[in-house]
Amino acid sequence: MKKLIQVTVKRGTEVFPFNDPSISDPMGIVVDIQNLLWVAQRGGIGIELETEKMDSNELDQLLNVGATLKDRFYSVLLTFEPYKPKPGTNDFPHKDLLLFTDPNQVKDAYLGVQNPDHETEWKLYRLPDFNSWLSKEVDLLLRVYTGL
């Protein structure tokens, strides 16, 4: 069973961590990110099936570049315990999931999937034209859960 530990939302330079019990009732964006993972690995809705591999250090550098953008940078990190589905289950193993604005192409976003066996390895799926959706989802989440 997947166990979500924390949701961390970044909007520009602001960071908002959400821990239990605030995440016991799944936030809409948590469900959306899990649905994006399901679609990304099967294809559809314009998500590219090809992935890019990146290690944690490269990903951290990319996210730091994003934080210095003139345009507002958004990211949502779902911190999970390592998840490995039972054989025959129609699901994919992962540790953390990260949805973020592409600092190099601000109209796009990326979905990052952390390898549960090698936690420095990430697989990235490019989500063309998803940045405006991500920004609205983050703004909505922060308005509902923090009043901002």
Results as ranks from 00 to 15, higher is better:
residue 28 G to I: 13
residue 64 N to C: 05
residue 61 Q to S: 06
residue 122 W to R: 07
residue 99 L to N: 05
residue 63 L to F: 00
residue 101 T to F: 03
residue 20 D to Q: 04
residue 13 T to D: 03
residue 49 L to T: 01
residue 105 Q to S: 11
residue 116 P to D: 07
residue 33 I to E: 14
residue 129 D to W: 03
residue 22 S to V: 03
residue 114 Q to R: 12
residue 8 T to L: 07
residue 139 D to P: 04
residue 77 L to I: 11
residue 99 L to P: 06
residue 126 R to G: 12
residue 44 G to T: 04
residue 127 L to H: 06
residue 103 P to K: 09
residue 78 L to F: 06
residue 70 K to S: 15
residue 54 M to D: 02
residue 51 T to R: 07
residue 98 L to P: 06
residue 20 D to T: 01
residue 81 E to F: 14
residue 6 Q to R: 11
residue 4 L to E: 07
residue 82 P to Y: 05
residue 103 P to W: 00
residue 46 G to L: 11
residue 95 K to T: 00
residue 51 T to S: 09
residue 6 Q to W: 00
residue 27 M to F: 13
residue 2 K to E: 14
residue 143 R to D: 15
residue 123 K to T: 09
residue 126 R to T: 10
residue 21 P to E: 04
residue 39 V to A: 09
residue 54 M to I: 08
residue 33 I to P: 13
residue 47 I to E: 03
residue 134 L to C: 06
residue 83 Y to N: 10
residue 98 L to S: 01
residue 18 F to A: 08
residue 98 L to F: 03
residue 12 G to F: 00
residue 114 Q to L: 12
residue 63 L to Y: 00
residue 117 D to F: 12
residue 125 Y to P: 08
residue 105 Q to L: 15
residue 5 I to W: 00
residue 74 Y to R: 09
residue 105 Q to P: 02
residue 89 T to S: 12
residue 98 L to G: 07
residue 81 E to I: 10
residue 94 H to Y: 00
residue 112 G to P: 13
residue 73 F to T: 07
residue 111 L to P: 05
residue 125 Y to W: 07
residue 65 V to H: 13
residue 72 R to W: 01
residue 68 T to V: 13
residue 111 L to F: 05
residue 112 G to V: 12
residue 24 S to W: 02
residue 80 F to Y: 15
residue 61 Q to F: 13
residue 53 K to P: 01
residue 58 E to F: 09
residue 66 G to H: 01
residue 116 P to C: 11
residue 60 D to Q: 13
residue 64 N to I: 10
residue 36 L to H: 04
residue 46 G to Y: 09
residue 19 N to F: 06
residue 107 K to H: 04
residue 119 E to K: 13
residue 111 L to S: 14
residue 86 K to T: 07
residue 89 T to V: 10
residue 12 G to K: 01
residue 86 K to V: 08
residue 82 P to D: 03
residue 140 L to I: 01
residue 58 E to V: 08
residue 80 F to I: 14
residue 37 L to N: 09
residue 36 L to Y: 05
residue 128 P to N: 09
residue 49 L to H: 04
residue 7 V to I: 07
residue 28 G to T: 11
residue 112 G to T: 12
residue 62 L to H: 06
residue 146 T to A: 15
residue 110 Y to I: 05
residue 31 V to Y: 12
residue 130 F to L: 11
residue 91 D to P: 02
residue 51 T to W: 02
residue 25 D to C: 04
residue 37 L to E: 06
residue 138 V to R: 06
residue 45 I to N: 01
residue 20 D to V: 02
residue 61 Q to W: 12
residue 57 N to L: 13
residue 141 L to S: 09
residue 134 L to D: 04
residue 140 L to M: 12
residue 124 L to D: 07
residue 67 A to R: 14
residue 89 T to N: 05
residue 137 E to S: 13
residue 26 P to I: 11
residue 94 H to G: 02
residue 76 V to M: 14
residue 49 L to F: 04
residue 49 L to Q: 10
residue 141 L to H: 00
residue 137 E to C: 13
